[in-house]
Simulated scan of single mutants.
Amino acid sequence: MKILIIEDDPGIVELVSLTFELGWPDVKLIVADTGEKGMNILESDRPDAVILDIGLPDTTGFEIIKAIRLFSDVPILMLTVRIDERDVVKALTLGADDYLTKPFRQMELLARIKAITRRTQHGDQDLKVSNGPWHFGKTLTELYRGQQIFHLTPIQGLIMQSLIKQAGQFVSAETLAAKIWGEHHAATADDLRVHIHHLRKKFDENRSGSGFISNKPGLGYMLVGE
């Protein structure tokens, strides 16, 4: 597997390199310190995933996400020092799959990369799961409500897979986080909430109405009926 990191901070690049050397040595890491170099490498080397810094010397990560999504659906994990949820939702809306805030834990980085590349694997692709009008297409990133299709990120697909399986019941935030990022994740409730918010926004933008995903403090999230 090849992973491209577009990051101009040598310290972050060194940390990411060490993380993969220790935790996922089969990965080949390709480095670009500008957006332009990153785009050139993306087109020539076709990596399996991209780790993208939001603040770059020649452009912004937002512009890079938009450019990548014009021709590729490669999984994108954005790195950001920003904690403004609006920036995160903007990146997810443009096509990023997940985000990680600097400074980050090394094992958390690996967990998130593995989560967003899971769509190229088959271990979690239980596509037969359905409930009422909800069902998946060829992958977990194709969700149908009746005849209407929603194109999801891998993480959104894993969330909806769990909620559809247990429709009408609350699924705890901890259970969802473990499903997405693994048992030893360090994700917070806010991380999950951002992805749920983006799912709700996606459903509403497609004019399907809102209120499909209910939440209750202490209980978690639930897919509700019509």
Rank of each mutant, 00 (worst) to 15 (best):
H135K: 15
G55V: 12
D126F: 10
K102Q: 12
F203I: 15
E7T: 06
A67N: 10
D26H: 05
A167N: 05
R145A: 12
N131F: 15
H198E: 15
I113A: 03
I83P: 00
D58S: 01
R145V: 08
E21N: 04
K165S: 07
I76D: 09
K201P: 00
P75H: 05
G168I: 07
S214V: 08
A67K: 14
L4N: 09
F212P: 00
A173V: 01
S208N: 13
N131I: 04
P133F: 10
P217D: 03
A115M: 02
F20W: 05
P57V: 10
D97V: 04
E36T: 06
R69G: 04
R118Y: 10
I159S: 06
R82S: 13
L4W: 00
L199G: 00
W134P: 05
Q148W: 07
W181L: 12
I51M: 01
F136V: 05
S17W: 02
L22M: 03
A91V: 12
T101W: 05
K128P: 00
A67C: 03
A189K: 11
L22H: 07
L100A: 04
Q166F: 07
I159E: 10
M222K: 11
L42Y: 00
I64M: 14
T139K: 10
L223M: 10
K114R: 11
I51P: 01
S72Y: 01
D8R: 00
H198F: 01
I116E: 07
D45I: 11
T34Y: 04
G218C: 06
V129R: 09
D204R: 15
D9I: 11
Q106W: 03
G35F: 12
H184Q: 09
S214E: 15
L70N: 14
E183M: 14
G23Q: 12
A189L: 08
D8E: 01
V13S: 13
H151R: 08
E14V: 05
L79G: 03
D191Y: 11
N131M: 09
A67T: 12
W24K: 06
I6A: 01
D204N: 14
T120R: 09
R105F: 10
R193Q: 13
S162N: 15
Y221L: 01
G209T: 03
F20C: 03
D33T: 14
S210G: 10
L92Y: 00
D126N: 14
G168E: 05
D126I: 07
Q125F: 01
V74L: 08
S44T: 13
D204Q: 15
F203Y: 15
E108K: 05
L152Q: 08
V194R: 14
L94Y: 15
G132R: 11
I54N: 03
M222N: 02
